[in-house]
Design a protein around this nucleic acid. Sequence first.
RNA 1: GGGGUGGUAGUUCAGUUUGGUUAGAACGCUUGCCUGUCACGUAAGAGGUCGCGGGUUCAAGUCCCGUCCACCCCGCCA
Length: 597
Amino acid sequence: MVTLKSKYRTQTCAELRKEQAGQTVNLAGWIHRKRDHGGVLFIDLRDNYGITQVVASGNISDELQKVRVESVIQITGEVRWRAPEAINTKLPTGEIEVHTTSWELLSSADVLPFQVADDDNAPEPIRLKYRFLDLRKERLHETILLRSRIIRSIRESMYNMGFTEFQTPILTSSSPEGARDFLVPSRMHPGKFYALPQAPQQFKQLLMVSGFDRYFQIAACFRDEDSRADRSPGEFYQLDLEMSFVEQDQVFEVCEQLFTEVFPKYSDWKLSSAPFERIAFNDAMMFYGSDKPDLRIKQKLANITEIFSNTGFEVFKREIEKKGIISALKWDIESLPSRKFFDDTIEWFKTTSGQGLAYLIFENGEARGSIAKFMNEGEIDAIKSQLNITGLSVVFMGAGAKKTILPAMGQLRVKLGEQFNAVEPNTYHFCWIVDFPMFEEDPETQQICFSHNPFSMPQGGMEALETKHPLEIFAYQYDLVCNGVELSSGAVRNHRPDIMYKAFSIAGYPPEVVDEKFGGMNRAFRYGAPPHAGIAPGIDRIVRMLAQEDNLRKVIAFPMAQSAEDLLMGAPSTVAEKQLRELHIALKLPKEKEKQA
RNA sequence: GGGGUGGUAGUUCAGUUUGGUUAGAACGCUUGCCUGUCACGUAAGAGGUCGCGGGUUCAAGUCCCGUCCACCCCGCCA
């Protein structure tokens, strides 16, 4: 680091060591803590880099004693080394202290709304309103610094792999697909609006058409949707990347190199090695009940529908007749859980998924449990052999339509994994989810519709669209998943207008709709477009994962509250009448009562 | 849009189940004492519309109804 000596400081609060003893130095920073002993006063002086103990006595002690913690002061003093018994081994600067000869108050602090030196669990709205104080706390401060280092490493890896960094417009046009847009009214074009980009999707594809081979951007993305613990309201950052003349595999290669380079720099956890495991979407649902499976848990779901094809157990029989499936989760255990465990688990399952849950206990080759009496010996034996049951095991079974029972069983898998301590610790387990279905059937109307992104390339291209049943066509679309978190989503793009029109017509859209919704892109594709593919890993989620934080607000310097409000700056806010007039906007607000309803 | 949990001092919480004297504790704050602490110690003090509104009752922080706010989840969101 370049030392920038100024009138305020000759060193930072982390620099001084025994070797500087005897020197006169200037330090500046925040009063982290004060310890007043009457004749002598100790101050922990803190800055971005660390803490140094400052000592004052006599008049200076009396004056400084009156300055509140978190005020900013500058001191001049002599570095002295501490007596052996006074050394603080917890501080890198703990072998020395600075004896103040003069000082200056640079900025005084009011009484704090919450403690900075201690973690007092102040409520989030207050911490967000006083974010600048929260950011002074060590853990959050370090996380934000970590975020910077991670992004730097990501940039370096991208440049090293031959990518070029671009900037794309923030004021752009409303996009037809996906989330709600944030709109920005145009002053120069009354009645028209810009939209903030949900992602630079179209621009990066246009850059490929423009002949730039490898694009990346640390891109701000805006979506007007509600938040979650793993989803920031309003805005978030993605490592957006796109490549020409590649297929899915090359996107995987780039990501695998990126993640295996970046993650070990910031964590000593075990890390999947490249190539990452690939799981077809349908298998992920069938065996993990999720399109973002947590592979730190070894147990899988099993499809045991076949076993019950002639069952006398009414509940299963009914579901199978309705084309439903029976999904089973076997767990080998060391000792038999209490009856309460089963009751609680079934109750939890019912409240979280609205589904029923059956169980069998296998012990010494015998089966018992909630539904044992409804099963015949053949079924019990078939379960034993399919699930490979040898010792003491419990088997949970859920029956229902794939779309509802599998996610429920998937949640059960994660819950039991945590409950039985079966989540492999200190591990980043990556996998790719591939082969997403291109189309799906609307359960109510039986209409064929796009199941995910209509702009990705169908596997098999035009031929598949023309010859295969729509529900059997997969898209070149993929998610990167780590420890049950979707880190990234991408696709091989459909760069062929003819295939685009065909795909849309299968989903019931005439060519005009394609022209209307996707006209700009389609025009570009008529002048020579390279095959291209890309992906966009979420920066906030990556940092959260490496910082091991549970909430995205803890890895973002100025996050919004769940209500999509910036409590520090007071956004969103009302604006002056004049501004509205210039924008030709008249407000028609809901009445108070409607607002509440 | 729906569900869950919570709201008592600046902050964290106890008290609410079973209504009953002046609503407590810790940290912080103010004023002292203390020359070796590093979460210093110590004495005293200030600080409360118990989220807000209504109701039941002799009496409400406590019971009932409504409402607001926050966080978490579902819907939504690649």
